[in-house]
């Protein structure tokens, strides 16, 4: 599938191709489907939290448990395949938020890339410029609109807008510290590693906030860059903790979290969401089955990362130089 690169280091051409593929998925509706290909991924992410039938009923198979890592790995693989159906050169870039206020973060939140912080609308948090602004502009003649079919799954009334929303101030100083990350990466036991890394991950969602703070979080395409970094960090941890023995050895979590459980929606119809959600989801063939065991090795999934280390943060710039 290719090499996932640091989002801050993409060439101008690589950025354009990535964003171009995002915009194509956003406006492409498969005949007979009700949502665009992009928004179907949002619906799947909502669905994993709201299963009401089958062995995973009442269980979030993608959050708050061991399968947080494998479920999102598979989710990103599927999304990356969709991007590559548009442009085979595209891979999901990762947002290396580890270094806070460095260009690794600040260069992303620009009009000409993933868009600026929120600044408009009744909430003061709507994205008004760039590719992901609601209204058509020179970057995106279609505008990036939150589908109203997703509004029933947005519990916060002020976020039921067609405009993408984010915090109005994205303060790099509030990003997780290197110590917080190392408190996850230095854990030898999978259980504590997952708990700590998911906690750091939660903080990033709340840092961006707006739609990123809810289960419809993939509405904001930054979601995929964020989760590519989480996936990279798991892959780095796996370098020293490889194999099935280092995934959920205690069998924690409900159905979907254990190593050979089927992960919805790649479960041959074992578990099911509400009919309201079912009506906007794509169909999955009964032969399309994935378990955590299937996704433990990124090499076997056909992708890699350009950097599998966490070097120390760059020194802060010195005044007057």
């Amino acid at each position: 599938m290719g090499e996932r690169k640091n989002a801050a280091n993409l060439t101008s051409d690589e950025r354009q191709r990535f964003i171009g593929a995002l915009l194509t998925l956003k406006r492409t509706v498969v005949p007979g489907h009700s949502l665009s290909v992009y928004d179907e991924f949002v619906a799947i992410h909502v669905g994993i939290t709201e299963l009401i039938g089958g062995p995973a009923a009442g269980i979030d198979g993608g959050h708050g448990g061991p399968a947080f890592l494998p479920w999102h790995r598979e989710f990103l693989v599927r999304f990356e395949r969709a991007l590559q159906s548009v442009d085979s050169s595209v891979s999901i870039p990762y947002w290396n938020w580890i270094y806070g206020g460095s260009a690794q973060t600040t260069s992303l939140f620009q009009e000409s890339y993933m868009g600026p912080p929120g600044s408009g609308g009744a909430s003061g948090r709507e994205i008004l410029q760039g590719y992901f602004a609601e209204n058509p502009n020179s970057f995106n003649p279609d505008g990036w609109k939150v589908s109203t079919q997703l509004h029933p799954f947005i519990p916060t009334p002020s976020l039921r807008t067609q405009a993408l929303q984010r915090n109005s101030t994205l303060n790099p100083g509030a990003l997780p510290s290197t110590d917080e990350l190392n408190n996850a990466m230095n854990q030898d036991a999978f259980g504590q590693f997952r708990i700590n890394l998911e906690g750091v991950h939660n903080g990033i969602h709340m840092w961006v906030a707006g739609h990123m703070g809810l289960m419809v979080s993939p509405i904001d395409p930054v979601f995929f860059m964020h989760h590519a970094n989480i996936d990279r960090l798991w892959a780095i941890w796996q370098q020293d903790h490889a194999g099935a023995a280092n995934y959920n050895p205690t069998g924690a979590g409900g159905y979907g979290h254990r190593i050979d459980d089927r992960m919805w929606p790649w479960d041959s119809g074992q578990s099911s969401p509400s009919s309201q959600l079912q009506s906007i989801l794509p169909a999955f063939p009964s032969s399309d089955i994935r378990t955590p065991r299937d996704v433990l090795d990124i090499a076997s999934l056909g992708y890699s990362y350009d950097n599998m280390t966490i070097p120390p943060p760059p020194p802060p710039p010195r005044d007057g130089h």
Binding site: H205, A252, G253
Partner: peptide
């Protein structure tokens, strides 16, 4: 929802 390993509660309406 309850994260049994972390011993923490969360909710789909406040997921993160």
């Amino acid at each position: 929802r309850f994260d049994e390993e972390a011993r923490k509660y969360f909710s789909p309406s406040l997921p993160y």
